[in-house]
Design a binder for these strands. Structure first.
Lengths: 229, 229
DNA sequence: ATAATAGTGTCTATAAGACAATATAAG
DNA sequence: CTTATATTGTCTTATAGACACTATTAT
């Protein structure tokens, strides 16, 4: 019995924080369907070179956006007849979190950053996929350390708190926040490194503890409800 | 450019509680590969009759186990070269929760219930898939009302508490449990219905409030971190 | 009456948040 | 010194758990 023709692709929702708002990186499509539209970086699964779908996501991110993300997690699979004009399709969606400054728009002029709110005009069901990724990130931000991946390598606690506040859309208690970070036990102060330059007491710079850096291989299928901790 | 030959299937992890332990329903395979082995109910996605992968899961559950589950959620997608001897495959996994008594083993002699702990000998990566489903259920049980789907239509609070305790593997505080159930506001007492017959004060029977029954259509892609509330 | 478990009241412990005091930089 | 923000201490409030008391049934 022949296998019916099903289109197998991978979509990547690449998220970063810019101007205190979550942004998604979209790519102007250069071929049909929806040539010219702004869409998620995507691609066919290639059984030759991809060991699994996550591998394909890593490759697509590298090829289409020149980015290797320290955090990449399976979001879910979107499938059905209606979502792709070419026919019945199945797309495994991943989401990646990166600090804004590594998004090298110069090297990829087709790449654009859009606020995740008020999206419209995305082809396929990409808007729905983005919304799902955003919900997932916001939901996880309430109980996990996920947002650290939106910061750079070094950051102060007030900066990190700002990231949480931007994601959650509400202020967070400073004392509780610091207690929580302390309990999570995933950050370490960088000895001697302080954020200085402004007219106030300098803030201690922190970084992720070594064992939590480059989690890539550990966050396989999104079956990891608490990314760290 | 031709689409590479990728095997697209759906697996369903059908779970119930028996003797205070989580059990998974496995099916003896009647064809290759792994004919004769106990495996998850699975099947090819059929673009002709399935609107999407979840639709396929519902169909497979109906055809292979004669069950329509009130709770079915996408677990994740498992893919790669090594998991199926026939070649590079992609399998969208779902999990379903049902009360033990609706598992009609008589009508499906090939169906078997196994404790989820100490599994071994499952073909493909089915053991891994089952473990992922079990982790998800246990994790969600700590903060959601998911376990109600393992009960029948009517149940007492002590019974429901027992389900939570079986899942979590530890006793839960009675007062806190009842407070939580009260807050969740998803149960209603069945007027006049009491569990009687034993030598003690009879317990009030409860049921899910109407709007939470038959959630099937709402739990699409597992993107619903809190199944209820 | 007794035993058994359901259901509830209340006290205690733990966690979260509010508020305020102190620290340290630039100008 | 003044201003601004980091960092820390402490009090208050909210939430979770422990314990015990009352309720209701079968025997």
């Amino acid at each position: 019995m022949a296998q019916p023709p099903i289109i197998c692709t991978v979509d990547v929702v690449l998220l970063c924080l810019k101007d205190a708002a979550l942004h998604v990186a979209l790519l102007r499509r250069d071929h049909a369907p929806f040539a010219g539209a702004l869409a998620l970086p995507d691609g066919y699964v290639d059984p030759e070179q991809d060991r699994d779908a996550q591998d394909a996501a890593v490759r697509i991110l590298r090829e289409k956006a020149a980015i290797v993300s320290p955090y990449l997690e399976q979001l879910g699979t979107f499938s059905g007849k209606g979502r792709d004009p070419r026919g019945w399709s199945i797309s495994v969606a991943y989401y990646a979190l990166v600090p804004a400054h590594i998004m090298d728009l110069a090297r990829h002029p087709a790449l654009q950053l859009l606020t995740v709110d008020h999206l419209k005009g995305q082809p396929f069901d990409h808007r729905e996929i983005i919304q799902a990724a955003v919900e997932r990130v916001r939901s996880k931000s309430t109980y996990s350390s996920l947002p650290v991946y939106l910061c750079g390598e070094r950051f102060t606690l007030p900066q990190l708190q700002g990231v949480y506040e931007a994601l959650l859309g509400e202020p967070v208690n400073k004392v509780s926040f610091r207690r929580k970070m302390d309990e999570l036990d995933i950050l370490e102060p960088i000895p001697g490194a302080m954020e200085t330059g402004r007219a106030n007491r300098p803030a201690q710079l922190y970084r992720l503890k070594k064992k939590y850096r480059n989690q890539l291989s550990l966050t396989g299928r999104g079956l990891n409800p608490d990314p760290l901790k």
